[in-house]
């Protein structure tokens, strides 16, 4: 019959009028972002070895750096690193190629600025880096401190981008999410995994799998308990 559809349409809007609003209140409540969300490009100067893979892999010439050859150790020394963010298209190729994971995307998306110059990010060589290099003397100490440094870096990386780091020891994405959640709540676990990942990768994988299984079991338990509780009600 004519007009039936109109009444149906009115009914639909009427129904939606009384349903709960789905709006996210952004400035008051921050949005829940996916673990692999690409927000702002971050760079860690101290970890960079100036290999240039990121620069070569970037399709838009966003990245550029300056190096200098060290007279003593004949190593390349990074002087400055520039991210011209206004050309970036967030393809993640630089972060994927980086062997040291010193360039990565964080979750910050509030990047608006009043000036175009502010979009460009320039990292200059921090002065402490040169001083620290001079200090390092003894081999054994150096070895130990190096290991400690690696563990620290790994911990940092785990905090910043857990999904990417953990994908080296865990295969399933689901497990990665579970473990990263676990580590966010428990610092001890995070430290342990970071230490193991630097020293022995196979062991780390096993331990991680153990943690994941435990977490899964716990979850299953709470779920069944919840259901039981409902039934009792």
């Amino acid at each position: 019959m004519n007009g039936q559809g109109l009444i149906k349409g009115l009914g639909i809007t009427f129904k939606h009028f009384f349903q709960k609003e789905i709006t996210e209140q952004y400035p008051d409540v921050m949005p829940q972002l996916a673990p692999r969300f690409r927000g702002c490009l971050q760079f860690e100067f101290e970890k960079c070895i100036a290999c240039g893979i990121c620069v070569n892999s970037c399709p838009n010439n966003v990245l550029s750096f300056e190096t200098e050859k060290d007279e003593n150790s004949k190593k390349k020394k990074l002087l400055s690193y520039t991210i011209d963010f206004q050309h970036c298209m967030f393809c993640n190729l630089c972060a994927e190629g980086c062997p040291k994971q010193c360039i990565y995307f964080d979750h910050n998306f509030e990047l608006s600025s009043f000036k175009r110059e502010d979009i460009k990010m320039v990292y200059l060589r921090p002065a402490e880096m040169d001083m620290r290099e001079e200090e390092s003397t003894n081999g054994q100490e150096q070895q130990e401190s190096k290991e400690q440094k690696q563990i620290d870096a790994m911990q940092k990386a785990l905090q910043k981008n857990p999904g990417k780091v953990l994908s080296k020891i865990l295969e399933q994405e689901e497990d990665i999410i579970i473990l990263s959640e676990l580590m966010q709540s428990d610092e001890k676990t995070a430290g342990k995994i970071a230490e193991l990942m630097v020293k022995d990768k196979e062991k780390a994988a096993k331990v991680a799998a153990g943690f994941v299984n435990k977490a899964k079991k716990n979850r299953a338990k709470t779920e069944t308990a919840g259901e039981g509780g409902d039934a009792n009600d």
């Binding site: 952004y26 400035p27 949005p31 963010f85 206004q86 970036c88 298209m89 967030f90 998306f109 509030e110 990047l111 608006s112 600025s113 009043f114 000036k115 175009r116 502010d118 979009i119």
Partner: peptide, 17 residues
């Protein structure tokens, strides 16, 4: 231009920001 919002594409929240 008064405000530049980098992003590709920009999130709606970033537009609000």
């Amino acid at each position: 231009v008064d405000v530049y919002i980098p992003g590709c594409p920009v999130r709606p929240e970033a537009l609000f920001h």
